[in-house]
Design a protein around this nucleic acid. Structure first.
Lengths: 186, 186
DNA sequence: CGCCGCATGTAATTAGTTACATGATTGT
DNA sequence: ACAATCATGTAACTAATTACATGCGGCG
């Protein structure tokens, strides 16, 4: 498993608390690896026990204390080793594609609607991606090495999103020809 | 969860045994939903208990008996209802993108190699997709309704694959500029 | 004889989700 | 008083992976 490695990756540059990690996952790495706060907290305990992370309690004014985690030397070595190993892919699972195998006149309109929703979600995500890209990765050749990797991941997300939008349009066009009922006031 | 629905989808047109389902998942629906035989067998038991599937033992010459599953009326209704509900997406998880966040001179060559492997895998997959497309979906407008849905799913797979190949090329080009050691015998 | 393909399963473990629990501060 | 944000956790459950188990028939 590699939630542990995703967490440690997020801690490469900034030390963070579990709460902050959960937030970071929602916008940055979380685009490629989704994790709930419950999972993160439990993983943090394991990683601290294994000696890959160090915990430090930080008092805050007007807010509860937080427990900030930092990579240890052992943690960094473990990461370096992990990068050199074989990658694992966990293919996504999407009801929508399975549903398409069940296409019929009775559900074509519904599926077109769901695809429309997905399109909308993807548009918003792409908007965020592009904002990040323009702000931090406008000139990829000028980036420090590690940042080039982050850029490549971002680029994969953007490309995939763009392809998905195009597919949504195609799919909706075809579904429109299938739809059983016509709604143009005839 | 929807492994159950993926299984029932696979049984829409053909009755199958667990073994056959596992094989079918590897080439057709499995492109969008991966499942091991263990999972499939257990799910089949649950679905039969729920009355959505019917089991029938079929004796075979020179082979062990097999248990063939068929959708019941209740199963078909459950499917029709499920299609009309909200879809769930389980985003994929890929070590490779997390690893890219760890890019350094010391691992650039390794990452480029891993991307090359992925490219090769995707090429083979696309070859299969295209073969299926040419054989069964050459003229999408002429397809029966349900098949149009399957075509759309296939199209999403093809498009995604093509985008991925292009990304691999871009990524390898950028990684080549990062790689610490030069190997051209200089 | 050993390995492969067919065919079905159980058990143990790990990963992930959902629900629940606590408690402080700030804003309405 | 009530909700929202910050902050951390436990418990129960579902899903998925890995490993193990069985047994027949055909091939080399």
């Amino acid at each position: 498993m590699a939630l542990s490695h995703a967490i440690m990756t997020a801690l490469l540059e900034d030390d963070m608390s579990g709460y902050e990690l959960a937030k970071a996952f929602d916008i940055s790495l979380g685009l490629f690896w989704r994790a709930s706060h419950q999972q993160i907290y439990q993983e943090l305990h394991k990683l601290a026990d294994r000696g890959w992370l160090q915990r430090e309690t930080v008092a805050q004014a007007g807010k509860p204390d937080k427990i900030v985690y930092a990579l240890t030397g052992a943690g960094r070595s473990a990461m370096a080793e992990w990068v050199m190993g074989n990658s694992r892919v966990q293919e996504g699972k999407d009801d929508l594609f399975v549903k398409l195998y069940n296409l019929a006149e009775s559900n074509a309109a519904h599926l077109a609607m769901e695809i429309g929703q997905r399109r909308e979600q993807m548009m918003q995500r792409l908007y965020l991606y592009e904002k990040i890209r323009r702000r931090h990765y406008a000139d990829p050749t000028a980036l420090p090495v590690r940042r080039k990797g982050v850029f490549l991941a971002l680029l994969a997300g953007i490309r995939q999103g763009e392809h998905f939008l195009a597919w949504c349009d195609e799919a909706q066009a075809i579904l429109a020809t299938v739809d059983g009922k016509e709604t143009d006031g005839g």
